[in-house]
Design a binder for these strands. Structure first.
Lengths: 354, 354
DNA sequence: ATTACTAACCAAAGCGCTTTGAATAGGCAA
DNA sequence: TTGCCTATTCAAAGCGCTTTGGTTAGTAAT
């Protein structure tokens, strides 16, 4: 069923039918109704490739996933994010084009996406502190939204980010207020912006409490289960082991807990733990109260919202940046003792624009 | 830079340039060289939307991800699979279109993918025992490849699958041969085909060893960490606890290990465990020897290969099904005692077509 | 020299949409 | 009645490619 056929059937021109279907004003209401009804009855759907060619718009959004031998973007967090974004795209009639690309071909990948009119915009995931993709995208003029931020980038751009600094500052402060003095940090790779900010928050809380940071307690790498296990194990077997852990994600937290168990320590008693919980669908912080005391923010929701913002950016065509900063929510679990008594200052836990 | 411009610049017709670029024979070699060189110099790239419209082919492949409130396809296994497939697509110049779709809209999603010429083929993931998608795709005539199989489907179709039956039969037999008599099975949802086959393998080994299956030892659900923990916990606290576990995936295995620890049992000594290991990039079976004794098969490799087969299917245009069955590889780890002495019969461990 | 091919190239017709520039008809003021 | 507006509708020209159906010139066969 093509537009042409539909038009012939209705005894109208393609122009009119096209306009009726696309909501243009110069079509009488009665005609529009007739057209829409008939189109629906015949299950007419415009050929998107023809539309794309004619309009130059693709109704598609790209996610470019860099792969390196070392730094895999394809982690459980990523897939939850994608699922969230995918929901939005599906609802809004956009297509999600996924590009798995070697880091060395990244620039090329973005360029060809825009040159070829394959996508109308892209989501940038896993930004580093120095993120070359931002300048690149600004230069080629492709609408984009960054999930996260890039500290080293001082131009304005659109982003959605969890307030990582604040989350880790709060968590650290909570532990320090409760008298903990040796807090092991099991963090993501600190050239990635989110991990850097978390580290800063951790440092900052120490500073406010006049406690010196022991860098022997700071581990940072890809957030695998094994990394969590290994770093916890090393810290625990040292002369001055930590009495609490702050862990950047559920996976390493599971590993750290394993190490704790192997040392015969009572989890939540002998040693405390606060984690950052992305609320992954396959790695839920389960139980009631939940196992882990956590700073929580759903990465799936973030994906959903990132997609929304990007579409808004694309549709409005304006280059005015949209920025949204979310606050993680504190969830009390069984991995810490009495934290509440060491009351923390008021915080706004809602998801708010900054 | 359009074809037209390039042709004008070269003093040739669009026809000739197009043919030169696409390797048609009716162009002289000298002309072809000139055209190709010039195209490269000017960085000419055909507009894919125009190509798609003209040819009806999209140079894109779809992955449709069903979401339900209960059954999330978006798990770590899925994302590794996608990463593998994505590599192949990138290499072959195909685009990966991801569709996150509510189960109820699935049929529609597939239909519109093909009707609209959005993709040239699709990969079907997570097939159930009764998998309606297969008949649907056969009916609408869209090339497809199933990752896994559907027991209830008796028509011929293309698939790539790990030999789940064999893997679990072997693993179970190993445990039984070593004298284990109560083997807890922590399986995926058994309406999904892979889990069903694994269960069959488990049953079958029991039968050959004349050991009765105790259904109180068989758990089956979404393969989360918590599910692994909870089912192991329940089994361990029963009157007749298992002495070994067979676990369907790394995530529940981690949970099961946690439960084992909580019961004060020595992992690999008081209780044995064999897992199925998809070799996930973020959940590696690390250590040497590795932590878990495992039946191992990389899901990322599977993704890579699935994509290759699908492209082959698309390009050949033939409807002759391609089927490939892989054998999981047995990896000895620290989660079992002496298994080797209980020698298993010879098996071909290579990845082979059936 | 004529015919018959073949090799190499080209003009033009699509693919199915959007959009520009007109055309038509009806309504209303002059 | 005429003229002007507005509300509808349409024909046709793209969008940038592929492909059909030639045409032309050169070569081989008769």
């Amino acid at each position: 069923m093509t537009l042409r056929e539909l038009a012939d059937l209705l005894g109208l021109s393609q122009t009119t039918v096209s306009r009726a279907l696309n909501g243009y004003p110069e079509v009488s209401e009665s005609t529009r109704k007739r057209v829409v009804a008939r189109a629906k009855a015949l299950n007419y759907r415009p050929n998107p490739n023809a539309t794309r060619l004619a309009t130059g718009r693709s109704q598609a959004v790209g996610h470019v996933i860099p792969i390196t031998s070392k730094n895999e973007m394809v982690n459980p967090i990523f897939s939850d994010f994608l699922a969230g974004a995918g929901e939005t795209y599906a609802r809004e009639g956009y297509q999600l084009v996924l590009n798995v690309v070697r880091e060395s071909h990244m620039e090329d990948a973005y360029r060809s996406l825009v040159e070829q009119g394959t996508v109308d915009g892209v989501v940038v995931q896993g930004p580093r502190m120095e993120e070359p993709r931002i300048a690149l995208l600004q230069q080629i003029g492709l609408p984009f939204l960054v999930h996260g931020r890039a500290t080293g980038e001082d131009t304005e751009y659109s982003w959605l980010d969890v307030d990582n600094h604040c989350a880790f500052e709060r968590a650290t402060a909570l532990l320090l207020s409760a008298g903990q003095r040796r807090i092991g940090l099991i963090n993501g790779q600190e050239h990635l912006d989110f991990a850097f900010r978390r580290r800063c928050g951790y440092n900052s809380a120490h500073r406010s409490h006049s406690v010196e940071v022991d860098t022997a307690l700071c581990y940072s790498d890809e957030m695998t289960e094994y990394f969590g296990y290994e770093s916890a194990r090393r810290m625990l077997q040292s002369d001055q082991p930590p009495t609490a852990f702050l862990v950047s994600s559920m996976l390493p937290a599971i590993g750290a807990r394993r190490a704790v168990g192997e040392f015969g320590l009572q989890f939540g008693k002998d040693i405390w733990m606060i984690i950052f919980d992305d609320n992954l669908s396959y790695l839920k912080n389960s139980g009631s109260p939940p196992t882990f005391t956590a700073m929580k923010s759903s990465v799936r929701d973030a994906g959903r919202r990132c997609a929304e913002i990007l579409l808004q950016l694309i549709r409005s065509g304006s280059s005015k940046p949209i920025q949204e900063r979310w606050q993680a929510q504190l969830v009390m679990g069984t991995s810490t003792g009495d934290l509440v008594s060491a009351k923390e200052p008021d915080h706004d836990h809602a998801n708010l624009t900054r």
